[in-house]
Design a protein around this nucleic acid. Structure first.
Length: 296
DNA sequence: AAGAATCGCAACCGCCCTTTT
DNA sequence: TAAAAGGGCGGTTGCGATTCT
């Protein structure tokens, strides 16, 4: 966090054109909230000006989106949200806004911070604690995620269990494997998938979701037939040499094309591997049933 | 009890893309 | 068509709080 500028926090010092930086004062928050509730979102530089804030438009936008929006869900991430973030990250990479769009009440910044502070740390600990040479395989009872993961390892299960659901077609399996192949070089990413899969098999999760498991709902076959087509037409392109950045850059390219209105003009046969349609990729995701829960 | 180390997260930075002029 | 402005996004910083030694 940054200290508030020592100047006129909350005062209408319009003679001073220097924009404030740093923490927002309660008075500034009030001004922004009142303005947004009364006038709605417009041009952000206008919002800053009309609300009487000595802030740049970007700063107002960030403050509103990340902190002041009334529909924000505050508090710690639930295990369900955590698992969903991990799952979505395995598909989307560091595209936090896309991930946030599928977690109502959460912001990209929040998810990004959560990822960088909490999840990465856990995975790091996981890697060091449960490396092949590690002799101590005992699990901490307070960490159900770890518990699930460890029992999976003990069963010698390499493919993440979340991908082993019998409802999945072989093509889906193939695509899911592909999903991991694109980033084989990154142990961290692999661990994350495994980590998430451990969660789905944890006793606590099963107890919550029921023995029949809404697993199928919770972990939908994200990689669609559309993706399978892409895989088939990928031809000689080596997925092993394709890193995550390439994949995400290509998704970005496709997204930008779509935004520019060219989506329909891109013929399938012209698409190369990686130029997958993001919305197609994600079309099964938004209906996650567990998104209705509220954080305690 | 106090200093050091670590964590969590709000906010800024800089780049890129889109829209407007 | 080019330049400028606006907006969005991911990466990074920095500071208060918390934990550790």
């Amino acid at each position: 966090m940054r200290k508030p500028e020592p100047s006129s926090a909350g005062k209408d010092n319009l003679s001073n054109n220097k924009l404030r930086k740093g923490l927002w004062s309660p008075e500034e928050d009030d001004k922004l909230v009142n303005y947004m509730l009364n006038n709605g979102q417009g041009c952000w530089s206008d919002v800053a000006r009309n609300a009487g804030l000595q802030r740049c438009g970007k700063s107002c936008r960030l403050r509103w989106i990340n902190y002041l929006r009334p529909d924000l869900k505050r508090g710690a991430f639930s295990p369900q949200e955590e698992a969903l973030i991990i799952h979505l990250h395995s598909l989307l990479g560091n595209r936090w806004s896309q991930i946030a769009a599928r977690l109502p009440g959460r912001t990209d910044n929040e998810i990004k911070n959560f990822w960088n502070s909490t999840i990465k740390k856990r995975i790091k600990n996981l890697s060091s604690t449960h490396s092949p040479n590690a002799s101590d395989h005992s699990s901490s009872p307070k960490d159900h995620v770890m518990g699930g993961l460890i029992s999976m390892h003990e069963q010698g299960c390499i493919m993440p269990m979340m991908y082993m659901d019998s409802s999945l077609s072989s093509s889906s399996m193939q695509n899911m494997t592909l999903n991991h192949m694109v980033d084989q070089s990154h142990l961290l990413e692999h661990d994350l998938s495994t980590y998430a899969s451990g969660y789905f098999n944890a006793p606590e999760y099963i107890a919550q979701m029921g023995p029949d498991g809404d697993h199928d709902l919770f972990v939908p076959p994200l990689e669609s037939v559309y993706m399978e087509e892409k895989v088939k037409t990928a031809g000689n392109i080596s997925m092993r040499t394709m890193n995550n950045n390439t994949l995400h850059n290509n998704i970005n390219r496709k997204e930008n094309l779509a935004r520019a209105g060219n989506c329909g003009e891109v013929e399938d046969h012209q698409l190369r591997i990686g130029e997958w349609d993001l919305e197609e990729l994600m079309k099964d995701v938004p209906s996650f049933p567990l998104l209705d829960f509220q954080v305690q």
